[in-house]
Structure formats: C-alpha cells, structure tokens
C-alpha cells in the first residue's frame, strides 16, 4: 500500500497523566463529540463522568434475563415432573414450589451470569478485531504508562484541523493522525 492510498480515520492524542486526561475528556465531551474513546492502562475513577458516559443498560438486561431464567426453570420442572413424566418420588407431590426453588435459583444465576458476560461484550461492540488506533506505534503504551484519547473521523463534529487544535489546547503531549 502506498501513502497516497491511506485515508485519515481519526486523531490520537497522548496525555502524560490522568489529571490532564480527565480535563481533556471533559473538553471533548463538552465539544459534543460522540465517536471517541479514552484509553488508559488502568481504571481511572471519574473518567465515566468526564466522558459523559450514561449509566449502563446492562443491569436491566441482566435482570430481565434472570427473571426469564427463574420463570423458565419453574416452567421446565412443572412440565417435566407434573406433565411429561409423572413419577412418584418418596410420596411427594408431582409439582411443588419448595422442591423447585433450588433449580430455579441455579438457572437464575446461570442465565444472569451468561447474560452479563455476553451482554457486556455486545453492548461494547466486542469482539472488535480491528480498530485504526492499532496502526499507531505510540498506542502500545496505552497498556503501560500513557493515556490516550482517540476521535474518529466518522464523528459528525470531526474536522482534521479544529479537532487537532482542541486536543492540543486540552493538553495533549502529541496529536497524531490515524490512517489506514
């Protein structure tokens, strides 16, 4: 691939500390960008607010799946024991709530845990096998000792010049174009 074929996909800004990163994230948030992300080697408290991230819907999804698990577990046992394959076990009724609760409980936990795991990946758009930030040599330090903000050119507010100057004025040590 020659240089002329490369297209600008976004900008990557590098920051030296969490403090500068947090303030820069607030600036980017307030400027109205939507297709951008912050990359840090460890969880930074306050970054969610600085980025303006909304509370996750994941908990509602997990709750709904958990309730389906509980109801499904109950239904399954009722159908198996009281309808499909009636079998007298130590004089117990074919179907009863107390005997069904352990299985309901386990299925609730199982379905909730799977829903949380799969839902978290899905809501985050994962697995994502390629992203343009990986073209940057500098970006490898996002897992070590540097903090980054990437803004994609697909963002409606994106403009190569003004976005770069916003990042620079927000305290970025380096702003580099992301191309592929």
């Amino acid at each position: 691939m020659t240089g002329s074929e490369k297209q600008l996909r976004g900008l990557l800004a590098e920051f030296g500390s969490t403090d500068v990163l947090l303030r820069a994230a607030e600036r980017v948030r307030d400027a109205g960008y939507t297709r951008w992300d912050a990359h840090t080697p460890f969880p930074v408290h306050g970054l969610d607010e600085a980025m303006g991230l909304k509370t996750t819907k994941l908990s509602w999804f997990v709750m709904a799946c958990g309730l389906c698990g509980a109801g499904g577990g109950l239904l399954m046992q009722w159908w198996m024991n009281a309808v499909d394959y009636k079998y007298i076990i130590s004089g117990k009724p074919f179907f009863s709530i107390p005997a069904s609760i352990p299985v309901m409980f386990e299925i609730t936990i199982l379905v909730s845990a799977l829903a949380a795991f799969v839902g978290m990946l899905a809501f985050n758009g994962l697995p994502e096998l390629y992203h343009v930030v990986f073209t940057s040599r500098r970006f490898v330090r996002a897992t070590n000792d540097r903090f980054f903000i990437s803004i994609e050119s697909a963002d409606p507010k994106f403009d190569a010049v003004t976005t770069a100057s916003l990042l620079t004025s927000a305290g970025a040590a380096v702003v580099e174009p992301l191309e592929d």
Binding site: S90, G91, K92, P98, A99, I101, P102
Partner: peptide
C-alpha cells in the same frame, strides 16, 4: 432460611 426449611420439608 430456605436451606433450613427445604431439608426439613423434603426429608419429612
């Protein structure tokens, strides 16, 4: 509470 109840209920 349920663990206590269920074992007693089940063994009867």
């Amino acid at each position: 509470a349920f663990s206590q109840f269920m074992l007693i209920w089940y063994s009867n």
